[in-house]
Design a protein around this nucleic acid. Structure first.
Lengths: 245, 245
DNA sequence: TAGTGGTCTAGACCACGCT
DNA sequence: GCGTGGTCTAGACCACTAA
């Protein structure tokens, strides 16, 4: 039962439960607490840190939700076995790749304003014919084409005129204009590459592609983005952790 | 600001926060609270129901985590737009399909005990050569083949001798023997169908298949199952909701 | 029986967004 | 300024597990 040393800064704007969760996570990832090992119980951990029990619980719950810890009543809290995988998170592909240390490049194939067709109108909860931005991009990693991406956004929410989408991710652009994505619903599937895909991705026609379509919603619950993307499955996959609550 | 009527049963073993979350969710799904509409603030909701504020918060948080509600400090709690999609949950394909009202069928292709190769040993955190169960199954929906599934489980944890896997899901079998899955890490990708796949799934060689590999962990954080599956993408996809925390 | 996490209460103060 | 959610405290009782 190793006790990682945790230090709190009560003058920091970072919540106490988050400070604890962060340092606990770091200790687990660094292997300071071995997989399968039990943590001290939450009451004494709270006492040791000078925290109330609910605050300590909140910190632990963060890591349980991430699938790093497992709790059992009457038994205790243990570190889950197995290597830690990067999560599917609410970020764009650009952010994902940047964080992984790669240097993604982007080629904007088209960026135009047009009227929403029924499918787009449905996904973005707009009337058919409403003005939207339609952006098609090719994402590369090094010289390798990785994905073809098609995004649609309500023109009333964003203005993409003059935005340099070759050097800035779409989500970063949205954040910069004060649009924060809070929720997204997505569907992952597969299909054959058609001629356009094959040409752009350097694959043969009929090759398998991994597909993702996503509708993203902002702070106020309005749809702000609808995307349909196709990835080369030899270069990309979706990792995720599921937790039973 | 519609107020859904919520009734509490304080003698029930179901936690109060869960009772509230369940009824709120039902009201949202049923459309009693419209998309985009604001809920009453949590303090008055708590007062109206005779609950403490933390309990009311916990109830709301459940739905925020599910991506159904969005909260903003200083503003309030709103229902997210967009149709609600079924989540990727910590269940087996069999459970998924049953819940969706389909009647999945299973053909067990093989079920044998053998020694773990390096890949399996790595995924299940066992020594190479440890005895494991290896199960290959074909899942059908109606007469349509849907997926080929390969699962591996430590023989020390389960005994599949005499288990009727044609009529019972693997996860159900595990639950029945007291093994509860709590955490799983999975990776979704795509690949070409090889001859064996094509034959079993009624596809042509080279057709795109959606793939998923998953390692599942039990209550105590030990790996209990490693699976590699391939799905027909015209019949299956993975839906999920992402929430920024 | 002892120890653990799960639930619940009744408050408090603060940060933020809107007007 | 006011109302909202975000955080935090200091307790309480209960259900479950393991010895």
């Amino acid at each position: 039962m190793t006790q990682p040393s945790i230090t709190l800064d009560r003058s920091s704007p970072v919540p106490l439960y988050f400070q604890v969760a962060e340092q606990l996570e770091r200790a687990i990832v660094a292997g300071e607490i071995a997989a399968g090992e039990r943590l001290d119980n939450e009451i004494s951990m709270a006492r040791d840190l000078g925290l109330s029990r609910p605050t300590m619980r909140q910190a632990i719950q963060v890591l349980v939700d991430k699938g790093m810890l497992v709790r059992r009543r009457g038994v205790g809290t243990q570190v889950v076995q197995g290597r830690v995988r990067r999560q599917v998170e609410l970020t764009s592909l650009f952010d994902d790749l940047s964080a992984a240390g790669h240097h993604p490049q982007t080629r904007v194939l088209s960026c135009e304003r047009l009227e929403a067709d029924p499918e787009i109108a449905e996904e973005l909860q707009l009337g058919v014919g409403t003005l939207v931005w339609s952006v098609r991009r090719l994402r590369l990693i090094g010289d390798q084409p990785l994905a073809v991406m098609h995004n649609v956004l309500p023109a009333s929410l964003v203005d993409l005129t003059g935005v340099d989408l070759e050097h800035e991710g779409l989500y970063a652009t949205l954040r910069a204009t004060g649009l924060a994505i809070r929720v997204a619903r997505q569907r992952i599937g597969a299909r054959r590459a058609d001629e356009a895909d094959a040409d752009l991705l350097g694959e043969s026609v009929g090759a398998p592609l991994l597909t993702m379509q996503r509708t993203a919603y902002d702070d106020s619950g309005h749809a702000v983005e609808y995307g349909r993307h196709a990835y080369r499955p030899d270069l990309y996959s979706f990792d995720m952790t599921l937790v039973d609550r």
